[in-house]
Nucleic acid binder design. Structure first.
Lengths: 235, 235
DNA sequence: AAGAGCACCCGACATAAGTCGTGTCGTGGC
DNA sequence: GCCACGACACGACTTATGTCGGGTGCTCTT
């Protein structure tokens, strides 16, 4: 983790990053300037923990580069993924607005650049600028939507169904094929965490889908051969 | 469902109800007056549906009296409880701040009185009054905390563990005993919905706990004989 | 008093999910 | 080339969870 005051080039990067954050791009200059001068740059290596569940929530973060996950763990070591974040997502704000501790742990999945904004700065802006608050409200609401879906899936759907749904949700078109790209960190273990299960079970599920000709698991991608058939199994 | 303009006595009831809503009591008079004049009273019978998941989110509701549940269902009829609300909780706001449709269905568990506030009123207040927005932000954040816990429980904990946790969480002291009160609508089916399982499984879990001397299931309450032993099973 | 409906019980069962031990394979360091 | 390691495969197994069909007792109605 490195620390640096936002010197001109850094400030530019931050400005560009913030500009891509939904609802924050159209904030008045006063808000933007406060954010620009208060944010500090941090860097994390793959696997490094940014904060743990229960840590005091001193900062709200903006993810400039790299993927990050937020999760909760049991003593036994099982892990439930809560969010997988990519640029330019905001994280850490929930803790700031509730009891002052982060609700989940956050880990860098790959080399990541983030901007840390002090909690008081955010709270101050929210109190003074309605348009900033409304942006936060929208951000928080859409996150609730995400967690409602997560709870529904975990409570009502089988691992197979969740897998199919996740594949379809993360699919992109790549030279004519429908694929879910796999990064270096997209191991079976990580995918299992995302689905709320363990590697073995996920592996079996994938095999089953592959045997049924619905998908093709390659080193750097999962090819969706039959999106329609996959959709059928989401029930 | 009945409709009535807030005549003086009604307005008083509404005022009292709003006064008990966290973060809303200390709103400036302008905010309070807007809410008081725009809210309409509705009544629902036990089992009646207030809105379904996907309905256009025209109102934000304040629950004045009675219990309400919010849930999602599969085609097959299985149901996952998302929230169990009691006076004076707010509901329906998520849909207003996202895509304009309610994310879950809401059902009255018993005879219920609610106040419906038009979505535009809420949006307008949020844009104009920072202190109102901050109240909403806190409300939304604490709801996120709830859903994170729900997701964690569903993903990482067994039905037994969830049951123990829920019993402890809902326990109250009643003439010296630690009990979870049962209302008329607290059937095994409803409890199962809350835990994200089915009646039969819940029934077995309860039997097991009873056989082990940890609890006592009575008609109108579940007595926690050994809270410490229950806590051990929450792992 | 009979009948209907509901809440719940119970045993048998099928399937889903998680665990464990071992083995393979490719990669990267030395 | 050798070795260590991490990612993944596979089969055997246990346990958890959900489903089904039938049965009991209670309450409310008529």
């Amino acid at each position: 983790m490195t620390d640096a005051a936002p010197t001109p080039p850094a400030r530019e990067r931050l400005e560009r990053a913030l500009g891509r954050v939904p609802y924050f791009a159209q904030q008045p200059d006063a808000v933007k300037n406060t954010l620009l001068t208060s944010a500090r740059h941090h860097e994390y290596e793959a696997g490094q923990i940014i904060y743990l569940a229960g840590d005091p929530a001193k900062y709200v973060y903006v993810l400039e580069q790299g993927w990050i996950k937020s999760s909760r763990m049991t003593r036994a070591g099982r892990e439930q993924g809560l969010l997988f974040l990519r640029p330019v997502d905001v994280f850490g704000h929930i803790g700031v607005f509730t009891d002052g501790t982060y609700p989940g742990s956050t880990t860098a999945l790959e080399h990541a650049h983030v901007w840390a904004i002090p909690a008081e700065t955010i709270l101050g802006l929210a109190r003074q600028h309605p348009e900033f608050s409304v942006g936060l409200i929208r951000e928080l609401s859409s996150r609730i939507l995400h967690f409602i879906s997560l709870a529904e899936e975990l409570g009502l759907r089988s691992v197979d169904a969740r897998l199919c749904q996740n594949l379809l949700r993360n699919a992109v078109i790549q030279d004519g094929r429908m694929v879910v790209p796999r990064r270096e960190w997209t191991t079976f273990d990580e995918m299992a965490v995302r689905l709320g299960t363990v590697r073995d079970v996920l592996s079996r599920s994938l095999k089953k889908l592959e045997a049924d000709g619905l998908i093709l698991v390659e080193r750097d991608a999962i090819v969706l051969l039959d999106p329609h058939g996959l959709a059928d199994r989401c029930n």
